[in-house]
């Protein structure tokens, strides 16, 4: 039950994108097609899960014992960047079309503050190893949900008569705002 609450908390209540407003760059950049957004969501989920696990190990077996917690940010960035490189190579090999449609946003996962935020929050909340991994998965799934929701809405928008000044990013931001308002409804659930 405790794991489930952490998971649900990360997915809905404290959704990284729509409630905590982290990682908005890919939210606008890759939410034009559902297919690409699912791919992006999977990539981010993978990076978050692995980063959570590795960051926890580094935090508790290297940073804390040697009393060098001030290097937390550097160490976590190292982990995240490596994981993103790995995902990039993997995608280039396995799904070149997805690799190309994600374009610059794939390497930009490195600087996605949602992932860094997840790693720092995980330490702040003093989660155990398993809790951290669950938290990482939850954060990734939450990110994916937000991205896919927005992408689905934006796909439908292609058929709508949007006023020219609002076309593209303008209307996307309005939708994201409304989605965010909707997600605040989950507050107090956990």
């Amino acid at each position: 039950m405790e794991f489930f609450l952490i998971f649900l908390g990360a997915v809905l209540v404290n959704n990284f994108v729509l409630v905590q407003f982290l990682g908005l760059c890919p939210l606008m950049g890759v939410s034009k097609q559902v297919e690409t957004s699912v791919g992006m969501g999977m990539a981010v989920t993978f990076v978050m899960t692995v980063a959570a696990a590795v960051s926890w190990l580094i935090e508790h077996y290297i940073l804390v014992p040697f009393e060098i917690e001030f290097l937390q940010t550097v160490a976590f960035i190292l982990v995240i960047a490596s994981m993103v490189q790995l995902v990039e190579m993997f995608l280039n090999k396995m799904s070149p079309s997805l690799y190309r449609s994600l374009g610059i946003f794939l390497p930009l996962i490195t600087t996605n503050c949602a992932i860094m935020g997840m790693a720092l929050l995980m330490v702040q909340e003093q989660y155990t190893f398993i809790q951290s991994v669950i938290f990482g998965i939850g954060a990734g799934v939450g990110f994916t949900i937000a991205l896919v929701l927005l992408a689905g809405l934006r796909e439908e928008l292609d058929y709508a008569d949007v006023p020219v000044p609002l076309k593209g990013a303008g209307i996307a931001f309005i939708i994201a705002g409304l989605l965010s308002v909707a997600f605040t409804g989950f507050g107090g659930l956990v």
Partner: peptide, 10 residues
């Protein structure tokens, strides 16, 4: 320690 640990991680 910082140098060694970060270097090793890298």
């Amino acid at each position: 320690i910082s140098l060694i640990s970060m270097g090793a991680l890298g």
